[in-house]
């Protein structure tokens, strides 16, 4: 019975994750042509190796670092409970698409490293903030999207996710 419930829940999550309408731009009709316009970094990454040519690497990293912005309050360590919701919400972080973390969450992908116990690894929360804001400032052309750069998560929302990943109370670190 329990297995069956998990199965159905998994099914719903599994389907909804991949077919989420983008509500951010509701009203305005965008076109395919507009949406496939690339920024400089996307252009640089569009090669079979998905690598930045060595001669462009310094410029690339510098530009990506420049794009990172902080919350007005200056606080990069928000509320882990809010972070938990943002992390799993397919319309927001959608982090489970690629990362496992909370062992209770079974519908998780394996493109990215498992984040279980992340907070115990003594990483600097500021690194975590910056990584989520712009993953390409650390791993150029990573498959991990640049959540802050594209405005899919606000600085405050990213701060909440930082707390979710670092807090000892968070299910990630239990």
């Amino acid at each position: 019975m329990k297995k069956w419930i998990i199965s159905v829940a998994g099914l719903i999550v599994g389907i909804s994750l991949l077919y989420v309408p983008d509500t951010a731009e509701a009203g305005k009709k965008r076109t395919f042509e507009e949406d496939i316009k690339q920024d400089w970094a996307q252009k640089v990454c569009s090669n079979p190796e998905s690598k930045v040519p060595p001669e462009l690497l310094d410029k690339f990293l510098e530009e990506q670092k420049k794009l990172i912005k902080y919350p007005k309050s200056g606080n990069i360590y928000g509320d882990w409970k809010r972070g938990e919701k943002l992390f799993s919400n397919p319309k927001k972080g959608n982090c489970y698409a690629c990362h496992c973390g909370d062992p209770k969450e079974l519908a998780c992908g394996n493109l990215g490293p498992n984040l279980k116990g992340y907070g115990k690894k003594k990483k600097d929360p500021e690194y975590t903030y910056r990584k989520i804001y712009n993953s390409w400032a650390y791993v150029p052309c990573s498959v991990m999207y640049r959540a802050g750069v594209h405005g899919r998560l606000t600085p405050e929302e990213i701060a909440d996710i930082v707390a979710y990943l670092h807090s000892p109370e968070s299910p990630i670190n239990k």
Binding site: D35, I36, K37, Q38, Q42, K43, C45, S46, N47, P48, S50, W136, C141, V143, Y145, R146, H150, G151, R152
Partner: peptide, 15 residues
């Protein structure tokens, strides 16, 4: 198009 990283998810078909 296959290799183009595009959109707010920075994806390409190839990734």
């Amino acid at each position: 198009l296959w290799y183009a990283r595009v959109g707010k998810m920075d994806f390409s078909c190839a990734m």
